[in-house]
Write a protein that binds this DNA or RNA. Structure first.
Lengths: 216, 216
DNA sequence: ATCGCCTGTTTGTGATCACAAACGCTGTAT
DNA sequence: ATACAGCGTTTGTGATCACAAACAGGCGAT
């Protein structure tokens, strides 16, 4: 490269910026299932060449966030029913464990932050903002699980969210929500009571609830 | 590239060959923790340029098989005790579930194949072949879990094996084994009896046993 | 002897290019 | 109208290059 326009983006490596931007889009359901991407297209959008675009794509394919066709083309995955159920089962396996590990460290300040996040969900519902709804929903879970001090486990949970991202947007577009999730209130109640058993149950229910209406 | 030597390797894309070769090495514990790799070195070893080497590296970093330093250098990770315990906890969470799902489909032919794999472990122990031991051990588990018909869950389990690979070689070099793992026999007995509860318990024990002697 | 600097080398990053395969559109034959 | 062949275009792949940051080794000052 001959000309560096350093002033445009202050952050680090180009391939990493592209990766994070795409990852956020996918996880928050801003890209529909089956949507095709091209390396040159990604590069042009972020003002970089094909090389960083390719690396970001590879990384996302490795995480299951993108599907790689036999000819090398990448697209967001269209999940089968079996795959969706499997990913929901993984959530039901991992997230109660994360919640249980976070429970002894969940002080009042954390619970208040969770309640704040949960209240902001209503605004997203009112505005029919599916992406915003997903983002706040995940922020609720991540805020809790961060307290588990289990980075590998949290990374695995995030990988699952990532794989479900595009499909989730279709789901939340389908159902007509009028109220914030009931299970989140149960989670908060269990946290306040320090009740591990009902906490794990509430988290498990929250992780598996949405998928039932995904039956195509 | 001007000259193509097509006759050398009949398999597919170069970056994929490099990826699979490195992945196998790491998973089977053939690379010690903390070992540094260079893109040019990888490229030279496989007769390719830096580009496919970089892509293979990125992919392995995304799976947690390689550690990426702040300066972009890659090396096999040196896991902390907390990280090892966390990965073992993940195995203890995922693998009993996989075994339970495989149980109703585990016919006699499968059990015999598992017994065969298990018997071949003895040869590896006699030859002090740590890598061969790990490979057969994983083959035992993968053969069983394949029957679970849960590809996403299996992929997640393999990712964990991958992260533990380099550390495992250090472990198996440390202990002086004389017999094949006792838990594998328990797993086989539970499979024959169709006893899900004791199967899950045996798998859980097998997943967590090795790590206790890893306390640095 | 130890610390700091300085320089030559190694290494990752990103752009560019040549190439082959896949794609998609158009026109033609049935 | 449909199916198929032909062809220009799009797209991923891998090699190569320029560049900057990181590294390592030695030299000199204190």
């Amino acid at each position: 490269m001959l000309i560096h326009s350093k002033a445009t983006e202050p952050t680090g490596a180009a391939h990493d910026r592209v990766y994070r931007a795409l990852r956020a889009r996918i996880m928050h359901g801003e890209i529909h299932p089956g949507q095709a991407l091209t390396l040159r297209g990604i590069g042009k959008e972020f003002g970089v060449s094909m090389t960083p675009a390719r690396e970001a794509g590879r990384r996302l394919v490795a995480e299951g966030a993108l599907f790689l066709s036999s000819s090398g083309r990448v697209s967001t995955p269209e999940l089968s029913n079996e795959r969706i159920e499997e990913l929901a089962a993984l959530r039901a396996l991992l997230e109660p464990e994360l919640a249980a590990r976070a429970l002894p460290r969940a002080h009042m300040a954390l619970i208040e932050r969770l309640e704040d996040i949960n209240n902001r969900v209503s605004g997203m519902i009112a505005r029919q903002d599916a992406s915003g709804y997903i983002r706040l929903n995940l922020e609720f879970h991540r805020t809790l699980y961060l307290r588990a001090q289990a980075p590998a486990m949290l990374a695995m949970a995030e990988t699952i969210w990532l794989q479900l991202g595009p499909t989730m947007s279709k789901l939340y577009g389908r159902l007509r929500r009028t109220e914030p999730p009931r299970n989140h209130k149960l989670i908060l109640a269990a946290l306040k009571a320090g009740d591990e058993a009902s906490l794990k149950l509430a988290v498990r229910s929250d992780a598996t609830q949405g998928l039932r209406m995904l039956k195509v």
